[in-house]
Design a protein around this nucleic acid. Structure first.
Length: 874
RNA sequence: GGGCGCGUAGCUCAGUGGGAGAGCGCUCGCUUCACACGCGAGAGGUCGCUGGUUCGAAACCAGCCGCGCCCACCA
C-alpha cells in the first residue's frame, strides 16, 4: 500500500511571491471575468498582434477578416468565424511566423443608410430634408459613435487581430483603390452603362444585384384573363399573378410548337382597359402546358418578358415607378395607386368587363430584397454594369487547378458552376452612403467623363460637369478587401509585399459568390495574384431548435452573453467543438464543456504548480508512466496541431479535451501524485514539461486560461522562456518520445484498474475500504492498480472469489457473496458470447482466407484471451 | 426543374469496410487534502426503411421515406 506523504508544498515550490501563491492556493475556480480583459490588454501592450511589414508573403502568415458591417453586432456566426481565424493566427504566430490578421469593417451601404435613416425619422427629419452632404456627414458621425462596437466585441473573444491597422471600406486609401479599379475596368470596356432590366428594391429605392435577391414561396391568385382577338369573336386567354402589369403589355406570346394557337401567330389582340393592339408572337420560352399556353408579355416589368421583348423588338412600356406606385402611363384611373391597390382596381375593372375567365391559387417562388425584405419590382432602368466573363476566366482556372483550394471540395463545384454561368453585375446603387461613382456628365453636350480626377469644366463645350449621384454596390469595394487593406493601389506598399497573397479565407457558404468569387477575380486582375491559397467553408450556426438564428425570429443567442456566462475560452471551445462543414445547432452544452475544461486546466495547474520544487521543466522518463504520458502527449500534439492545420477544429478541440481530462488528469496526475508530494525531481520536471507543452498546445483554442497559468508557470519554473505564451513555440511531435510499449503497458494497467473498480462497485465494496487480493502472476501489476483500485495486496483468506487478470480477489467481510456470484455468472455469460462470436468468425473459411492477416491474428488472440479468462473463472 | 447535404443513445453530434463512440441528460455511490464547473461506477442504440456488393456494411452501391440548404425565367 502506498501511503501518501504530504510535505508542505510551500517548502517546495519556487513560487516565491507570497501574494501570488496565496491567489493560486485559494482560487479553486477559474474566473474568466477579470482575467480576460487584463490578459487581453497585456497582449495588446506587448505588440504581439502588430507584426512588422517585413519578409515575404510566402514566409509570413496572414488572414484578412471578413469585414463585419459597421452597423453590426457580433453574432454567433462572427464568433465561430473569429474563433477559427484566431486559432489559425495564434498557432502560426507561435510557430514563429510573422503573422498578420487584418481587421476592418464594411461600410455596408444599404444596411447603414437604413439605420441612420431610421434614426432621422425618429428625430422627425429625413435624409431628403438634410440633403446629401449633410446626410453623409451624419452617417460618418454615427459610424464614429457606434460603428466600432463590433471591433470591441471581437476583443472580448480574444481575437488577435492587428488593431493598430484597422481599415474601413470607405477610408481614404480604400476609396483610392475603389476608384482606380472602377476607372481601369471602364477603360478596359468591362464597365458600361446600360438601360436594362434590374431588380428594383422599393424598400431601399435602389437597384440591387441578383445575389441580393432571395426567393420566397408565396401563394398568389393566378388570374386568367381573356384578350379579344382583333377582327373575330375569339379570345386568347392569358394567365398572370400580377394583373396590374397588364397595363404595360406589348404582346402575347405562344409556343412555336403549340398547334392550338399556331393560326393566331401574326394576328393581333386588343388589350382590355387600354385598347392597345398587341401582336401575337411565337417564342420558345412559352410553355404550352402552362395555363392556356398563352403568355402576356410585359417587357417593362418582368425579366423573362424583357428578354422576349428584346428578341422580338417589342415596345417597353413602364407603368410602375421607382417609388412602387403606378405612373401616368398606367392611365388616369390607376395613376398614383400603389401596386397592391392597382391590382385590386385592375381586377375589378376587368371583372366589370367580363374579362376574368377564372382564378386559382398558385404557390410559386417570388423574389424579395435580401436587405429591405420587400418584394422586388423588376424595372427597366439606366444603370452601370460590370461584365464578368472576362474576369471570371482566370478565376475559374485557378480553382480548377487548386491554386485556390476550396475546402470542402464540393463547394469547388458550386463555385465553378456559378462562375461558368456568370452574368453581368449591376454595380450602381441609388444610395448616398458609399463610394460615389467617378463619373461626370456634361448636360450641355452629353459628354461623359470616367476618371479619378475630373476636369473643372467640360473639355468639349466648356459646360459645367455634374457627378453621377449613384454609389457603388458595397460588394464592389469588398471584392478588393485582401489587397486594398494592405496598401494597394500603392504597388510598393510594404504590407502588400509582406502579406499578399493571404493564406486562407474563412467564411460560411452564404457569401461564396457575393464575396469570395469576386475577390478571386479582382485579386488576379489587379495584383496579378490570387488573394488566398485556401478557402475554408465552415458551419452556419443554427438556433438550438434548428431554425435560423435571427433577432427578428427571437432565435438569436448573443455570443457576448455567453462570454459573460461561461467565459471567452468556453465559447471559443464550444463553437469550435460543434463546428464542421455542415450546419450545426447551437449547443450551450458544448460551451459548458469548454468552461469545465478551462476550470480543469486551472485546477490541474494549481496542483502541479503548488507542488513542484525548483526544477526545470524537462522530459525525464524515469518510469513507464512518464514514458506513457510523454508518448500520449505526442499523439495529442499530432491530433490538436494537425487538426487545426487540417481545418478540423472540432476534432482538435475534442482531442485536446480528452487528452487533458482523461489522460493527463484522470490518470497521470493520479499516478504521479505520491511522487510529486514526495518531492521527486524527475516527476516534477516531467510534469512541468508536460504542463508547459499542453498549455502551448491548447493556447490557440483557449488562449486566456492558458496564458494566465503560463504566467504562474514562468514564476515557478526556472529557465528562459518567452514572456507570454502567445509567442511561446508551438509544440511539435518528437518522434523519439513516442513509446508504443509504454502506451500498451499503462493501457493494460488502466483496463485492469477499471475492471477491479467495476467489481468493487457492483459487488458492494464500500469506496473507502481496501479490497483484499492476492497476486497470481509472476509480474505484479503496476503500483497504480493497487492504489487506484484500493487493493490490499496481503489478502489472506483461502477463498478465491474471482480472478481478474493477474489479481485474485479473496473472500472478505465486505463482499456480498451473492453479488459476487452473480457478477461472475454475468461475466462468464459475456465471455461465452464473445468466444462464440470469435469462433464463428474464425470457422468461416471466407474470413480466414480473405481477411487481412493481422485482422485474423487479432481475432485469434482475442479468442485465446477470452478462453483463458473463462478458464480462470472456473 | 437541377444540384448539394443530412437521418447513429432521451438531446447535440463524432465515427465512413473488421467487435457501436463523446459531451450533456439519466441511475447508483463518494465532502478521497487540484477541481462538486469534481471523483468512481452504471443503464441506455434492429446506426431511417428495403434490396444489393463483400468472408464481413453504421460505413460502399441502388431504390424508397423524412428533413434541410443552394441554384433556376413556367407566367
Amino acid at each position: 500500500m502506498t501511503i501518501v506523504v504530504r510535505v508542505d508544498a510551500q517548502l517546495h515550490s519556487a513560487l516565491v511571491d507570497a501574494d501570488r501563491r496565496k491567489t493560486l492556493e485559494q482560487t479553486t475556480r477559474w474566473d474568466p471575468g477579470e482575467a480576460e480583459s487584463r490578459l487581453f490588454s497585456a497582449w495588446l501592450e506587448g505588440g504581439y498582434f502588430h507584426p512588422p511589414a517585413e519578409g515575404t508573403a510566402a514566409e509570413n502568415y496572414s488572414i484578412a477578416i471578413p469585414p463585419p458591417n459597421v452597423t453590426g453586432e457580433l453574432h454567433m456566426g462572427h464568433a465561430l468565424n473569429g474563433a477559427i481565424q484566431d486559432a489559425l493566427i495564434r498557432i502560426n504566430r507561435m510557430r514563429g511566423r510573422n503573422t498578420l490578421w487584418v481587421l476592418g469593417t464594411d461600410h455596408a451601404g444599404i444596411a447603414t443608410q437604413a439605420v441612420v435613416e431610421r434614426e432621422l425619422r425618429k428625430q422627425g427629419t429625413s435624409r431628403h430634408k438634410l440633403g446629401r452632404n449633410a446626410f453623409v456627414e451624419r452617417v460618418w458621425e454615427w459610424r464614429q459613435k457606434y460603428g466600432s462596437r463590433i471591433v470591441e466585441q471581437y476583443q472580448r473573444l480574444g481575437a488577435s487581430c492587428d488593431y493598430e491597422r484597422e481599415r474601413f471600406t470607405l477610408d481614404d486609401g480604400y476609396h483610392r483603390a475603389v476608384i482606380e479599379v472602377f476607372v481601369a475596368l471602364h477603360e478596359k470596356g468591362l464597365i458600361y452603362r446600360d438601360n436594362y432590366m434590374v431588380n428594383w428594391d422599393p424598400g431601399s429605392r435602389s437597384a440591387i444585384s441578383e445575389l441580393e435577391v432571395e426567393s420566397r414561396e408565396v401563394t398568389d391568385v393566378l388570374y386568367e384573363i381573356d384578350y379579344p382577338v382583333e377582327g373575330s369573336d375569339e379570345v386568347i386567354t392569358v394567365a398572370t399573378v400580377r394583373p396590374e402589369t397588364m397595363l404595360a403589355d406589348t404582346a402575347v406570346a405562344v409556343s412555336p410548337d403549340d398547334d392550338r394557337h399556331r393560326r393566331l401567330v401574326g394576328r393581333h389582340c386588343i388589350l382590355p382597359l387600354v385598347g392597345r393592339r398587341l401582336e401575337i408572337i411565337a417564342d420558345p420560352h412559352v410553355d404550352p402546358e402552362f395555363g392556356s399556353g398563352a403568355l402576356k408579355v410585359t417587357p417593362g416589368h418582368a425579366i423573362e418578358d424583357f428578354e422576349i421583348g428584346r428578341r422580338h423588338g417589342l415596345e417597353e412600356v413602364t407603368v410602375i415607378g421607382e417609388d412602387g406606385r403606378m405612373n401616368a402611363a398606367a392611365g388616369e384611373r390607376f395613376d398614383g395607386l400603389t401596386v397592391d391597390e392597382a391590382r385590386e382596381a385592375v381586377v375589378a375593372a376587368l371583372r366589370e368587363e367580363g374579362r376574368i375567365r377564372g382564378e386559382q391559387k398558385l404557390t410559386h417562388a417570388v423574389p424579395y430584397s435580401h436587405r429591405s425584405g420587400e418584394r422586388i419590382e423588376p424595372l427597366i432602368s439606366l444603370q452601370w454594369f460590370c461584365r464578368m466573363d472576362e474576369l471570371a476566366a482566370p478565376a475559374i482556372d485557378v480553382v480548377e487547378r487548386d491554386e485556390v483550394r476550396i475546402v470542402p471540395d464540393n463547394y469547388k463545384r458550386v463555385y465553378l458552376e456559378w462562375m461558368r454561368n456568370i452574368r453581368p453585375w449591376c454595380i450602381s446603387r441609388q444610395l448616398w452612403w458609399g463610394h460615389r461613382l467617378p463619373v461626370w456628365y456634361c448636360d450641355a453636350c452629353e459628354e461623359t467623363y470616367v476618371t479619378a480626377e475630373p476636369p473643372e469644366r467640360c473639355g468639349a463645350c466648356d459646360g459645367p460637369l455634374r457627378q453621377d449621384p449613384d454609389v457603388l454596390d458595397t460588394w464592389f469595394s469588398s471584392a478588393l478587401w485582401p489587397f486594398a487593406t494592405l496598401g494597394w493601389p500603392d504597388r510598393d506598399a510594404p504590407l502588400l509585399s509582406a502579406f499578399y497573397p493571404t493564406d486562407v479565407l474563412l467564411t460560411a457558404r452564404d457569401i461564396l459568390f457575393l464575396w469570395v468569387a469576386r475577390m478571386v477575380m479582382m485579386g488576379i486582375e489587379f495584383v496579378g495574384e490570387i488573394p488566398f491559397d485556401d478557402v475554408y467553408v465552415h458551419s452556419v450556426i443554427q438556433a438550438p431548435d434548428g431554425r435560423r438564428m435571427s433577432k427578428s425570429l427571437g432565435t438569436g443567442i448573443d455570443p457576448l452573453e455567453e462570454v459573460e456566462r461561461y467565459g471567452a475560452d468556453a465559447l471559443r471551445f464550444g463553437l469550435l467543438a460543434m463546428s464542421s462543414t455542415q450546419d450545426v445547432r447551437y449547443s450551450s452544452a458544448k460551451v459548458q464543456q469548454g468552461r469545465d475544461l478551462a476550470n480543469k486546466v486551472w485546477n490541474a495547474s494549481r496542483l502541479v504548480l503548488l507542488n513542484v520544487g525548483e526544477v526545470e521543466p524537462a522530459p525525464s522518463p524515469a518510469r513507464v508512466e512518464d514514458r506513457w504520458i510523454l508518448s500520449r502527449l505526442q499523439r495529442a500534439i499530432e491530433a490538436v496541431g494537425g487538426g487545426i492545420d487540417r481545418y478540423d477544429f472540432a476534432h482538435a478541440a475534442l482531442d485536446l479535451y480528452s487528452f487533458f481530462w482523461s489522460e493527463l488528469c484522470d490518470w497521470y496526475l493520479e499516478i504521479v501524485k505520491p511522487r510529486l508530494y514526495d518531492g521527486e525531481r524527475e516527476a516534477a520536471a516531467t510534469l512541468l514539461w508536460v504542463l508547459e507543452q499542453t498549455l502551448a498546445l491548447a493556447h490557440p483554442l483557449i488562449p486566456f486560461v492558458t496564458e494566465e497559468v503560463y504566467d504562474y508557470l514562468r514564476d515557478a519554473a526556472p529557465g528562459d522562456r518567452p514572456e507570454m505564451l502567445v509567442v511561446h513555440p508551438y509544440p511539435e511531435v518528437d518522434e523519439t518520445l513516442i513509446d508504443p510499449e509504454a502506451e500498451a503497458e499503462i493501457e493494460r494497467s488502466i483496463e485492469l484498474t477499471r475492471s477491479l473498480r467495476r467489481w468493487r462497485d457492483l459487488v458492494g465494496v464500500p469506496p473507502r475500504s481496501l479490497l483484499p487480493v492476492r497476486i497470481v502472476a509472476a509480474e505484479p501489476p503496476h503500483e497504480l492498480v493497487s492504489r487506484l483500485a484500493r487493493l490490499d495486496l496481503d489478502g489472506s483468506s483461502d477463498e478465491t472469489l474471482a480472478t481478474i487478470g493477474p489479481v485474485e480477489i479473496v473472500g472478505s467481510a465486505e463482499v456480498d457473496p451473492d453479488q459476487a456470484r452473480r457478477r461472475i455468472a454475468e461475466r462468464r455469460e459475456a465471455l461465452h458470447a464473445e468466444v462464440a462470436r470469435a469462433e464463428g468468425k474464425l470457422s468461416n473459411e471466407g474470413f480466414v482466407a480473405k481477411a487481412p492477416q493481422d485482422v485474423v491474428d487479432a481475432e485469434r488472440e482475442k479468442l485465446d484471451r477470452y478462453r483463458a479468462e473463462l478458464e480462470e473463472l472456473g
